[in-house]
Design a binder for these strands. Structure first.
Length: 463
RNA sequence: GGCGGGUUCGUCUAGUGGUUAGGACGCUGGCCUCUCACGUCGGUAACACGGGUUCGAGUCCCGUACCCGCUGCCA
């Protein structure tokens, strides 16, 4: 039997990190077992979903690299099937029509308020055998009254619940739309889903769903309920893939790696490529306990991925960000070299762009602290002399530039820092940049000399 | 309230009856060094609590506390 799993989000307009992890776990499970990963849009709540919201799901999944198999299923397009199944269950006495009004239900609930178990519908209509002509009505599932429901969760272990705590839940609403609880079973059956991996907030629903499978004479799939991610408040904007991607300059590999490790582990391993994740992922190794989201660690994991992704891939991530910053770059050897230089000192994609800016744009101002620390009365002469030397250099190469500067410093009995730091400030605008040879090399001979001379003028103006 | 789950450093976690309770993030000290970083070597800090079972319990059982979820004609 080939493994078939699905990710079934409802289109809310953004991809919540918790949902993203559910998608990842499903995808990893499918790829690990050579199975299929199906995408289904849960849009039975017609008020809430829009096409733009559906597009967000596609975009986020694509960015994360979680490609799905086959066509996307839309619940809203399958109304007829739900009714067919509901009618069949009614005919078999396994479901029934209920014309209790919302007001009546509300009143009953209010009356039951102080009783021991106030959570269930009182089953007024259960044995009335109401026909389709009973007015406005819903269709309810006829839950067994005695015994207990139990299933072996791939993550949580054995979970048991007594039928007396289970409700005659609604399958079809009075407006004819199926409820999630009902549609999910019909759809998972139609898609021949073998394993359902979802958030632990669905644990209690599972008993209802299994009862439905039994009523339909079908074998339920295996379930795996992943713990929740805590601490994703809306405080900093919506806790979504889109938000963190931009705010933190994430690589998909970084997000995936972090999110996978939150609630799942593989010995002491921390950093995984996507291939390694697929190989190592086992749903049984997922934790039962909820986990606290830790942005600091996300940042660190992302940084580690920044260090190891193939350089061409890194280039493809970063080129659009450069464009956005008004800097045009093209893929190629030169860009790769720049990225190799920057990736180790940047913590994320955004910092690669901001840290590389000096290569393309001359500083307009000089950082105050850097000037205070590295510029003095000798600086104009020093920078001009250095520019002279640089101009004479006919071997334009980072190592040669550095060697020249070392010799330059030595000739003046200065330490390297006394030359490199003023030069760096002059060229970058701040005394922080990659190694001085690389820094100058990337700026280019002519431009570097110009910046040195310009800074010399500036230093002179300081008096 | 009822029901279902959970509980190892601040955080993510390893651990499946005998360990100096390990790793990672963070924080912190040193080294490296032309700066910023990277890296590297150290330090910091945990078995929620109370009862059992056992020669021996973070590991098994029970209770308490706390946390999460469900209790919708939301998904």
């Amino acid at each position: 039997m080939t493994v078939r799993v699905r990710f079934a989000p409802s289109p809310t307009g953004f991809m919540h990190l918790g949902n993203a992890r559910t998608a990842l776990f499903n995808w990893l499970f499918a790829r690990h077992h050579g199975g299929e990963f199906i995408l289904r849009i849960e849009d039975t709540d017609r008020e809430r979903h829009t096409e733009a919201a559906v597009q967000v799901i596609y975009d986020s999944l694509k960015w994360m690299g979680l490609n799905w198999d086959g066509p996307v299923l839309r619940q809203s397009e399958r109304l007829a099937i739900y009714h067919e199944v509901a009618e069949k269950l009614i005919a078999e006495g396994k479901a029934y029509r209920c014309n209790c009004t919302r007001e009546e239900l509300e009143a009953k609930k209010e009356a039951m308020k102080d009783t021991v178990n106030r959570s269930c519908y009182d089953r007024t209509c259960r044995d009335k055998n109401l026909g389709p002509d009973c007015g406005t009505h819903v269709v309810r599932f006829k839950m067994p009254l005695e015994g207990e429901s139990s299933f072996d969760d791939m993550i949580q272990g054995k979970i048991t619940k007594s039928y007396k705590d289970l409700d005659d839940f609604i399958m079809i609403r009075s407006d004819g739309m199926p409820t999630y609880q009902f549609a999910v079973v019909v759809d998972d059956l139609a898609l021949q889903i073998t394993h359902v991996i979802r958030g632990s907030d669905h644990i209690d629903n599972t008993h209802d769903q299994i009862a439905l499978y039994h009523a339909l004479g079908k074998e339920p799939p295996r379930f795996g309920h992943a713990p929740r991610i805590l601490g994703l408040s809306k405080r900093k904007g919506s806790p979504s893939v889109e938000y963190y991607r931009e705010a933190l300059g994430l690589l998909p590999e970084g997000l995936n790696n972090y999110i996978a490790r939150l609630g799942w582990s593989h010995g002491n391993d921390e950093i995984f490529t996507m291939d390694e994740l697929v190989k190592a992922f086992d749903i049984c190794d997922v934790n039962q306990a909820n986990g606290q989201f830790d942005e600091e660690k996300l940042i660190w994991v992302n940084e580690q991925q920044l260090h190891i992704v193939p350089i061409e891939k890194l280039a493809s991530y970063v080129i659009p960000l450069f464009e956005k910053a008004g800097i045009h770059v093209e893929a190629g050897e030169w860009l790769n070299k720049l990225l190799e230089m920057m990736r180790m000192r940047a913590h994320n994609l955004n910092e690669i762009v901001s840290g590389s800016r000096f290569v393309f744009v001359a500083p307009e101002t000089y950082d105050e602290a850097s000037v205070a620390k590295h510029f003095n009365a000798d600086t104009p002469e020093l920078l001009n002399a250095l520019a002279d030397e640089l101009e004479k250099l006919d071997n334009w190469d980072p190592a040669a530039i550095e060697a020249m500067m070392k010799a330059f410093a030595e000739a003046r009995t200065l330490k390297m820092g006394k030359v490199a730091q003023p030069a760096r400030t002059a060229i970058v605008g701040i005394a922080q940049s990659p190694s001085i040879g690389d820094t100058i090399w990337f700026v280019g001979q002519k431009e570097a000399c110009a910046r040195l001379r310009k800074a010399a003028e500036y230093a002179k103006s300081l008096g």
